[in-house]
Design a protein around this nucleic acid. Structure first.
Length: 259
DNA sequence: ATGGCCCGTAGAACGGGA
């Protein structure tokens, strides 16, 4: 099966890009972040017509996450859970479902704005709460995937200009420590299991010709439990949608898992 | 050198993103 994650920066604006991408890349599960629409405006009918069922958690203006599943191959998302049961949060940033036996967590980590800000403190607390919840999930689900926009570039090689980003939000040591804490729980960064080109990122700033200059960061990740990681056969970042008119600033990340 | 865009809500700018 193939699992993908993509921050679409408004599903309303990007619906056609998602439909086009799914037609060309009929993954079995697609995690979406930054829907930026309330639940009653989620385009379930358009996705169903394209062969995808969905579970979503939206809100007006900000955040919002969804898990799409290819009905023909894996059926609808099962046992859907919104949010983290250990963290009361009005911001819709987490949705979990079972897809073909895999417990799939779709996450939109907080951005954090700037180191030392209130939003940064919220980011760290949010991640700590996720770290608190994951062991329970791991015990119940040997096949576990944590997919999404982490808003963390784990290492300097995930940053186009490490010196300029040193200590800044997305690259600060407390954030990177938490990424390593996720790995220390026993989760594996699917992307780094394989040979990858240098300077391949998943996000590029809209400003200053960021994509043209490849001024990007790798902040969208798929962490897999060992039982899943040992079955992974590839992990790729698809830059093609970033070249379209009115693109999302993020590219999809795809992992293929052997049967 | 600096800052450079995009989205939603609004009904003009502004908060937020990263």
């Amino acid at each position: 099966m193939r699992i993908a994650t993509w921050n679409v920066n408004s599903l309303n604006v990007r619906l056609q890009h998602v439909l086009d991408w799914l037609r060309a890349n009929p993954v079995d599960a697609l995690c979406l972040q930054e829907l930026k629409l309330p639940d009653d405006r989620f385009p379930a009918a358009d996705l169903a017509a394209a062969g995808y069922a969905a579970a979503w958690a939206g809100q007006p203006t900000y955040n919002g996450v969804a898990i799409l599943t290819r009905t023909e191959t894996v059926g609808p998302p099962l046992d859907v859970l919104r949010g983290n049961p250990r963290f009361e949060d009005p911001q819709q940033r987490l949705i979990t479902a079972t897809v073909a036996g895999v417990r799939l967590v779709c996450a939109y980590f907080p951005n954090g704005q700037s180191v030392g800000s209130d939003k940064y403190a919220y980011k760290l607390a949010w991640i700590d709460a996720l770290l608190g919840w994951l062991p329970e999930l791991q015990r119940a689900h040997p096949l576990l995937a944590l997919a999404g926009d982490y808003n963390i570039a784990p290492e300097d090689r995930d940053v186009h200009h490490p010196a300029a980003w040193a200590g800044q939000v997305l690259c600060s040591e407390p954030e990177r420590e938490r990424f390593r804490a996720l790995v220390a729980l026993g989760l594996i960064d699917a992307f780094r299991r394989f040979d990858q080109p240098d300077r391949l990122f998943s996000w590029w700033d809209y400003r200053a010709l960021g994509f043209r200059r490849n001024a990007g960061l790798r902040i969208d990740h798929l962490l897999l439990s060992p039982a899943l990681a040992e079955r992974a056969v590839s992990c790729t970042i698809d830059k093609a949608p970033r070249r379209l008119d009115k693109p999302s600033d993020h590219a999809p990340v795809v992992v293929e898992i052997a049967d």
